[in-house]
Amino acid sequence: MADPLAARDTENYQQEYVQEFVDKWDELIDWDGRAMAEGSFFIEKLRELGAKKILDVATGTGFHSVQLLEAGFEVTSADGNPVMLAKAFENARRRGHILRTVHADWRWLNRSVHDLYDAVICLGNSFTHLHDDNDRRKALAEFYATLRHDGVLILDQRNYDALLDHQIQPTHNYYYCGENVRAEPEHVDEGLARFCYSFPDGSTFHLNMFPLRKHYVNQLMREVGFQRVETYGDFKETYRDTEPDFLINVAEKAYQGDE
């Protein structure tokens, strides 16, 4: 591509997650390191909210789906990229699990997923792949529609406010724990965050993502119908806006006072 910064389209991720990058993705993540960094945050939060049946809409290579299965949740694993989905199935099988997988585009999620869930999780900074405001609204509405009346959406994102406003570099303490693997922003503006992923063998890959601001995401969630939205920073309830690498948004569907 003549101008890599011009790739600001929701469909772009399909070309970015090629087989070679997907095969290396677990080097970037390091499942054991990530499990230690996260602790039991998502498991405890889901249990606290009474969720048992979970739809993981951004399965990736399967990390959270496997974590939740091993914690006793009923999990359906969805992803828009078939290469990622195949890798997740393979990873889970090596750990003694058979994933229930669905290939689905979030914007038309309920064409592919015909069930109701206690919780939808969209993790790993995945929502940032949607470059268009209408796509984001449509996806959130689809997540909302597949939840039970008292269901919850848990969606995370990089702390793009810190990147945009303060040029604070991510520390990778939580999500990117792989040895000698670098994930760094090459370009950030209000409409694009381009990250470069460098591996020990010299290979590099790029992802073009939309820099989601915290207030904007919270507002979208409320506009599609979620009644209560709380944001956590790097798995803590209190934080200064410039500190966390990642923000975790927990959006509840039920009205305040619902039984």
Rank of each mutant, 00 (worst) to 15 (best):
A193L: 12
E179K: 15
A183L: 12
N180C: 02
H172M: 10
A183W: 12
G191E: 15
L123M: 15
H129R: 00
P200I: 01
L123T: 01
L164H: 10
L130G: 08
L164A: 07
G191R: 15
Y175L: 13
L192Y: 09
H131T: 04
L212P: 04
R182Y: 10
H149A: 15
V152R: 03
L140Q: 08
E179C: 01
T128K: 04
T128P: 02
A145R: 14
D165R: 13
D189M: 08
R194F: 03
F195G: 00
E142D: 03
G178T: 04
Q157R: 13
V188R: 02
I168L: 10
N173H: 13
M209C: 13
F143H: 07
S198L: 02
A183Y: 10
N134L: 14
M209R: 10
R194E: 05
G124H: 02
N159G: 05
L155S: 10
C122G: 03
I168Y: 03
N134Q: 15
L147K: 04
R148C: 08
G124V: 06
F205T: 00
R137E: 15
K138W: 09
L163T: 07
R213L: 11
D156V: 05
V181E: 05
L153H: 04
Y144A: 03
R182M: 09
R182K: 14
I168Q: 11
Y197R: 00
G191W: 13
G178Q: 05
N125W: 02
Y174K: 09
N159P: 08
G178K: 02
C177L: 06
C177S: 08
F143L: 02
R137K: 14
N134W: 13
V181S: 03
F195S: 02
G202C: 05
N173M: 09
V152E: 07
I154Q: 01
I168S: 03
P211C: 07
A145N: 14
D161T: 06
L147I: 06
A183V: 15
C122D: 12
D165F: 11
Y197S: 00
A139M: 07
R182A: 11
P200E: 11
P170K: 03
S203K: 11
R213A: 12
N125K: 01
R148G: 13
F210H: 15
D133G: 00
F195R: 00
D135N: 08
H129T: 13
L153P: 07
E179Y: 07
S126N: 10
G124N: 03
T171D: 15
A162W: 07
L147P: 02
D201F: 00
D135M: 09
L140M: 12
F210T: 10
M209F: 07
E184Y: 11
L123W: 03
N159D: 08
T146H: 00
Y174P: 00
F143P: 00
Q169D: 11
L212D: 09
S126M: 04
L163N: 00
H166A: 14
T128L: 11
E190M: 12
